Simulated assay, not measured.
Amino acid sequence: MNELTDLISHRFSRAEPRRLVISYMEGLLSSELRKTAFALASRAREVGPDGMQRLLRTAKWDADAVRDDLRAYVLRNTGVPEVGQGDRDRPVLVTAQQTFVKKGRHSAGTAWQYSSEHGRMENCQIGLFLSYVSEQGTSVLDRELYLPREWLRDRSRGMSAVLPQRAQYASKARLNQQMIARVLDDAPHLPWVSVPERELWDEDLRLWLEERGVPYVLKLNPEDTAALLPRGMADDLLAPPPGGRAAGVNTLPWQTVRLRGPAAGRRAHWLLIHQPTAPSRRPQSYLCAGHSTTVTEFIRAVRAQATTQRCLAVLRREVGLDAYQVRTITGWYRHTTLSLLAHAFRSFSLDRRPVREPVRT
């Protein structure tokens, strides 16, 4: 754990929280089935869970500063040789949302809201996450908690979750833009941006990516796709054939339609449409843009979304991303940040890579 201690110890001015955070991280990295404060305190041989809970609630340390250390750590360990535009090794930033189902209504951000993860309305928190997918590995390096408008209207409820006094509503698209901006400011290479759900981006985010020259793949709704397609093509490309893909006019799983070609410094824009093999499933379509890009790059950026979902499943299953027992917004950000850091450390730490046995002579 020396590498991890050196990475974040300067963020804790007092010895007690510095000691507790290392014990907390060791617990997250352990094989404990539940990563609750009580289980982590027992493993650290604490008298009770008060110390671990105090670490998440009231101890003086900045979760955003540790997040910055996490981002730098991931970028350092997933660095690739200098790449040019259109190179297949370009990393991909993937936005995603995770649902944290709750029984009560007092945890920050909890509301009766639609869970795209489960396909139904639930009493839950929704966390937004940004992953960095590269040939060297995948790690989630940023997080934001979505706060529904009702939390900002009810100030007494906000006070119980210790929301900032000047907290303002931010859409999911806006939160994603903030996370992407933090990575673009630090990343050594211009990455792709891949957004797997329509509600996670809006026109402001798309235009912002255009202004910065960032290549992107954005999920579209069927009605948006039909509006962008030339007249007469929508029926062929968007309606699943009765007998499956092979019975239709298009027999390839991926179809592309050029919307605008590169000219006078402008970027190419495409529609990328995936035809599923099952006749009961609807085609999935994406709006793509970039300089000197290929269809293979578009597809790779889309497939990075599945890589991110697998990474988030590991975070929940193995390092306790959803095992927190705190209600305040500060506690959510602190636990989530430490979980992301634990996963990144496990993925990239030199101490955890296979050690070659010495050659005996």
Results as ranks from 00 to 15, higher is better:
282 R>L: 13
10 H>Q: 14
106 H>S: 14
259 L>E: 09
134 S>V: 00
356 R>G: 05
60 K>S: 13
7 L>K: 08
255 Q>V: 11
175 L>R: 11
183 V>H: 06
269 H>W: 10
23 S>I: 03
240 P>V: 04
203 E>W: 09
243 G>F: 05
37 A>H: 14
36 T>W: 10
156 S>D: 15
126 I>T: 13
10 H>R: 12
92 V>F: 02
242 P>C: 06
218 L>G: 04
245 R>L: 13
76 R>N: 12
352 R>L: 13
358 P>C: 09
277 T>E: 15
38 F>L: 13
159 M>I: 14
294 T>K: 10
87 D>W: 02
131 S>R: 02
281 R>F: 00
310 R>H: 09
37 A>D: 14
189 H>I: 12
273 I>G: 05
147 L>C: 05
195 V>I: 15
57 R>S: 11
332 W>K: 01
153 R>F: 07
152 L>G: 06
15 A>S: 13
128 L>W: 04
63 A>I: 01
187 A>G: 01
103 K>Y: 07
32 E>W: 00
9 S>H: 11
189 H>Q: 14
149 R>M: 12
207 L>N: 08
118 H>C: 06
180 I>A: 03
22 I>V: 14
217 V>Y: 03
325 Q>A: 10
50 D>P: 00
328 T>S: 03
18 R>D: 04
281 R>Q: 12
75 L>F: 03
1 M>W: 13
120 R>D: 01
91 P>H: 03
168 Q>V: 14
